[in-house]
């Protein structure tokens, strides 16, 4: 992508370059959709653009956002993690129970993170050692994690762990003015994962493995290890999301994570990640999560009868991916034209 901008003629103004950059961006479609939503609602539903609403919307989207970022890494490396939602619930349960046992806060957090990493390693082992397809290995892991949580809680939510710090962790009590801790955490996760993907060797390997396993293997990449590492990333992001969720939800029921895996995948794919691997962006995952949260927010604000909610969500999903598709086609045309311009043929 960046090569297009680099090879563009020097005489191009900054505006042109930014424009070119945006056009070839796979997340352009969803960005356009978001802007469209904002524009339409500015005229029809002013309350949507009120700062307090946008603030709520952002806060609500953070859990899915963090999950979607982890999911993006897995998708880039050519896998899929269906266990991410239940892992989130399991980690929330571990954090909450550790607090109840009287462990100090940081120990509880470490326990939760360790659980997430362990689940990630488990997924990686099932896939690389036993040779299970990703879909099935993580579906089985979903079963294990939810089973453990049900047996452990007997269906009764875990309560009585909410120390004041957990209200801050969950974003219920703002950290500074109106800045909440989950916002900072999400930003950190985004910076770290974006950095890893964009400018480290590991990041390159994720893309390489996802684009072509045999190709990566032939160029000496230890594919199995890289794939496992991708699942550790998603396990850890599930743990981070779980810790926030424990604070936000103020109790941990066994079905806390139900459906979150689908939301995370949807957010990542809306943001331009390809289920076939090798493609995806952290910024896309962020925009995808915000799109999903905005959809529910709009449904609530407009007052769509709740029976129509699912239909609207389904339609938005198709629209978002169609928008990306259109932007890809447009960017293809633009690139073709630029190539023609470079060859000196008038477009």
């Amino acid at each position: 992508m960046s090569t297009t901008a680099a090879t563009a003629p020097k005489k191009n103004s900054l505006v042109d370059r930014v424009g070119a950059r945006l056009l070839v961006d796979p997340t352009l479609g969803v960005l356009a959709l978001l802007i469209l939503i904002c524009l339409v609602s500015a005229f029809t539903l002013p309350v949507f653009l009120e700062p307090s609403n946008l603030y709520n919307l952002l806060n609500t989207s953070l859990v899915v956002m963090i999950l979607a970022m982890g999911m993006t890494v897995v998708l880039i490396s050519g896998g899929i993690d269906l266990s991410i939602g239940t892992t989130m619930a399991l980690c929330a349960g571990v954090a909450a129970t550790s607090m109840k046992f009287g462990l100090p806060l940081f120990a509880a957090l470490i326990a939760a993170l360790a659980t997430g990493a362990l689940v990630g390693i488990g997924n990686g082992l099932l896939i690389t050692r036993l040779g299970l397809p990703d879909f099935i290995a993580t579906l089985a892991m979903l079963g294990f994690a939810s089973g453990i949580l049900y047996i452990w809680t007997k269906g009764v939510p875990i309560i009585g762990y909410m120390v004041p710090e957990f209200y801050v962790i969950g974003g219920l009590t703002p950290l500074l003015a109106s800045l909440t801790l989950p916002m900072i955490i999400a930003l950190l996760v985004a910076l770290v994962l974006g950095g890893v993907l964009g400018s480290t060797r590991l990041g390159t390997y994720f893309f390489a493995v996802g684009s072509s396993k045999t190709g990566a293997m032939q160029s000496g990449i230890r594919v199995d290890r890289i794939r496992t590492q991708a699942y550790i990333v998603s396990g850890l992001s599930a743990a981070v999301a779980g810790i926030i969720m424990a604070g936000r939800n103020t109790n941990v029921p066994a079905d806390l994570g139900n459906g979150y895996e689908i939301q995370a995948i949807a957010a990542a794919v809306i943001g331009g990640a390809a289920l076939s691997g090798g493609r995806g962006r952290i910024l896309g995952a962020i925009l995808g999560a915000i799109t999903l949260a905005a959809t529910v927010n709009l449904i609530n604000l407009v007052g769509v009868p709740s029976s129509y909610q699912k239909i609207v969500i389904g339609a938005i999903l198709i629209l978002a991916v169609l928008a990306n598709r259109i932007s890809a086609i447009v960017s293809g045309i633009v690139r073709q034209r630029r190539a023609l311009v470079l060859e000196g043929i008038p477009a």
Partner: peptide, 23 residues
């Protein structure tokens, strides 16, 4: 004046209430 789906679970209830309280 307003109603929203909270799916019988707490975090959806929280989100729905936040949205409706804004409006």
């Amino acid at each position: 004046v307003g109603e929203a789906d909270g799916g019988y679970v707490r975090d959806k209830g929280l989100t729905a209430a936040q949205d409706l309280l804004t409006k």
